[in-house]
Amino acid sequence: MRIGIIGTGHIGGTIARKLKAVGHDIRVANSRGVQSVRSFAAEIGATAVDVSGAVRDVDAIIVAIPLPAMALLPKELFDSVPADVPIVDTSNYYPGMRDESIPEIEDGMPESVWVSKQLGRPVIKAFNNILAYSLAELGRPEGAPDRLAVAVGGDNPTSKQIVIALVNDAGFDPVDSGSLEDSWRQQPATPAYCCDYGIEMMRKGLAAAVKGMASGKRGRMAELFAQLGPDPSHADIVKMNRSLNPLA
C-alpha cells in the first residue's frame, strides 16, 4: 500500500519504520517541511514529502501529531482525497499535561470526533492506546501468545478493515472498539489505555469503560505521572495506567 504519514515523532516515526519494514510504500512529512524529514526518510527507505504530498495518491493516511495541532493543518488538505482512503488519527488529549483545554472535549465530545471536525473528514482512531516504547519494541508475529493489542474505532467498515490490517502488519492484534462515537473507550485514563494488554484483556478493558469517568481521572493520571519523575521506566508507566482502572 501507498501510505502517507504526517508526523515523525515517537508514534508516527515508529509506525513509518514498521510499515516500511513489511513492504509498504511510505511517504513521510511533518509541519516543518520536506528538508526536515529527508534524513529520517533516507534512514528507513521512505520518501520525504510535504504534507500535501503525504495525502496525494495514497491508499491510507496516518496523522500522528499532537491533538491540538490537528486544527493547524491546512483547511483544504484533504479536499482531493478520495472518500475511500482511510485517515487514521493517533492523537490523544492531555489537558494539564501538554494541551490547553478544548471546551467541546471537556463537554464530552469524543476526542477523535473533535479531530474529524477539524479535518473535515471521517477518521479511524488507532495507535493511540499503546505506549511509544511498546509500539517500537513489543510488536510480535501474528499468533504469538504474548502479542499486545491495539484498539481500532471508526464508522466506515471498509476503512476500518484497512486500518485493522495495518495494525496487524505493525505487530499487534487489532481489536474493533466500535464506532467513532464510542472511541472514548480508548482515550487516556480509560481501562484500555496504554496498559500493554493482550487481545482478551483489551476487549475487557474497552467493555469496562464508563462514559465520563475518564475525565475525572485525568488529573489523577497527571499527578501520578509527575510522581514517576523525569525519566520513568516503561514498566512504571504501565503499572500507573493499570492502577487507575484495575481489571480483575
Rank of each mutant, 00 (worst) to 15 (best):
41 A>E: 06
61 I>M: 10
191 P>K: 09
82 P>A: 07
241 N>L: 10
131 L>V: 15
92 N>H: 04
117 K>H: 06
185 R>N: 00
148 L>P: 01
2 R>I: 12
190 T>Q: 06
134 S>Y: 05
137 E>L: 07
82 P>K: 02
169 D>H: 10
65 I>D: 04
15 I>Y: 00
244 L>Q: 05
151 A>S: 11
222 A>E: 11
161 Q>L: 04
214 A>M: 14
68 P>V: 05
24 H>T: 01
169 D>I: 04
127 F>V: 02
39 S>A: 10
33 G>M: 01
206 L>R: 07
101 S>W: 14
135 L>A: 04
19 L>N: 03
224 L>H: 10
136 A>G: 05
68 P>I: 12
197 Y>K: 12
193 Y>I: 07
186 Q>P: 04
238 V>H: 04
121 R>Q: 03
19 L>A: 01
238 V>N: 02
21 A>M: 03
143 G>F: 11
168 N>V: 05
14 T>W: 07
189 A>Y: 00
230 P>E: 06
11 I>R: 13
126 A>F: 00
55 V>N: 01
106 E>K: 14
244 L>S: 09
81 V>G: 10
160 K>T: 08
227 Q>N: 15
144 A>D: 13
189 A>E: 00
119 L>G: 04
189 A>Q: 11
88 V>D: 00
122 P>H: 04
146 D>H: 08
159 S>L: 13
131 L>M: 14
213 M>H: 15
232 P>K: 11
107 D>T: 13
214 A>N: 12
176 D>M: 03
230 P>C: 02
163 V>T: 09
202 M>T: 10
61 I>N: 06
210 V>E: 05
138 L>Y: 03
61 I>K: 08
121 R>M: 06
214 A>P: 04
111 E>A: 13
71 A>D: 10
37 V>P: 01
116 S>Y: 02
1 M>F: 03
64 A>T: 02
40 F>H: 02
198 G>F: 07
60 A>Q: 03
86 P>F: 04
177 S>K: 04
195 C>D: 06
242 R>E: 13
245 N>K: 07
230 P>Q: 11
152 V>I: 10
52 S>E: 15
210 V>M: 12
41 A>G: 10
215 S>W: 12
206 L>W: 00
53 G>C: 02
69 A>C: 03
211 K>E: 14
218 R>Y: 08
88 V>I: 13
148 L>N: 00
